[in-house]
Design a binder for these strands. Structure first.
Length: 111
DNA sequence: GTCCTGACAGGAA
DNA sequence: CTTCCTGCCAGGA
């Protein structure tokens, strides 16, 4: 693992921590923001180790607003619970009104 | 060293 | 609108 890789992972965590309460973003958006638009998968991979970090991984979903990473949380619907507790509506593992709740780290779009 | 896998994304059919 | 296929990059066997 190269130092650059460690930096990338660390950056991912930092960006994820910037996600506002009740907002969500995508792996690709984070990757693109870090200058690695082709490394969206690496963002998800980094999130795998986010358990030890203080990172709201539940606010990061794929571009369709689908909770693809819910299986990596303890419970079956823990990720959905966390989101709904923040006011985000989730139906069938999919975030409703995803486009409106989407938060681009580059744009930092306000609600 | 090769091969397989994965919390993705984008485009095509 | 949905489903399928390809490209990417890092890690583990």
């Amino acid at each position: 693992m190269t130092p650059e890789t460690l930096n990338f992972f660390d950056k991912v965590y930092q960006v994820a921590q910037q996600i506002p309460y009740g907002r969500v973003t995508s792996y690709g958006a984070i990757a693109k923001y870090l200058g690695a638009p082709r490394s969206a998968r690496m963002v998800g991979y980094a999130m795998n180790n986010s358990s030890e970090k203080n990172v709201p991984a539940h606010r990061v979903v794929n571009r369709k607003g689908l909770l693809t990473g819910k299986h990596h949380f303890d419970g079956t619907n823990l990720m959905q619970q966390l989101l709904e507790s923040e006011g985000v509506t989730v139906v069938n593992n999919q975030i409703q009104d995803f486009k409106n709740l989407f938060w681009d780290p580059a744009e930092k779009t306000p609600l």
